[in-house]
Amino acid sequence: MNIFRLTADMTHLMSVIVLLLKIHTIKSCAGISLKTQELYAIVFTCRYLDIFTDFISFYNTIMKVIFLWTSFSIVWYMRYHKIVRRSYDKDQDTFRHVFLMLPCLVLALLINERFTFKEVMWTFSFYLEAVAILPQLVLLQRTRNIDNLTGQYIFLLGAYRALYILNWIYRYVTEPNYVHWIPWMSGLVQTLLYGDFFYYYFLSWKNNVKLQLPA
């Protein structure tokens, strides 16, 4: 474990907590894409299949449980909670996320480190996570009003992956034959997708104005 990875995991945890706070306290999921949340629940399910078979550390297991539990809770809130679901604008959140899942699955079957079920699922989770934010970014373009919590949530979600890239650089430099091209490439694509959001988020912070993405 290194400081980059610990900070990254804490940033990721913070993003989930910000979102849960928004949904649980103000009982609203306005501006949040259910499609992205469902993709994240799938990402964690496919990535943590080894939660009962490979014990890495208490930290690792506890964090896996937290990410699984929170991602499914958020999907449950947005789908079934009688108050929260009212603030979900389904006619704006129309991204067909199945068109993201199929190519990622095919790619995972073609490019993976080992052709086993768990490994292909693990690989699929990385390819899928790289593009999981797309429905959310599309929704942001459509809904003009981006409230602070939503902006912070997306910022933290993007920052965690950028920090993971620092972790991967650090591990590549310090650990002999530590090479994992699949997470590296996926993580890079994922971080680049946040590029323009980071730019506008920084501008809104610098000029102290409300976050507005160009149409």
């Binding site: 490979d54 690792n60 993971y164």
Partner: peptide
Amino acid sequence: EEATSTHDEL
């Protein structure tokens, strides 16, 4: 187990 077989990151 050798590091490569298990993925130790979240």
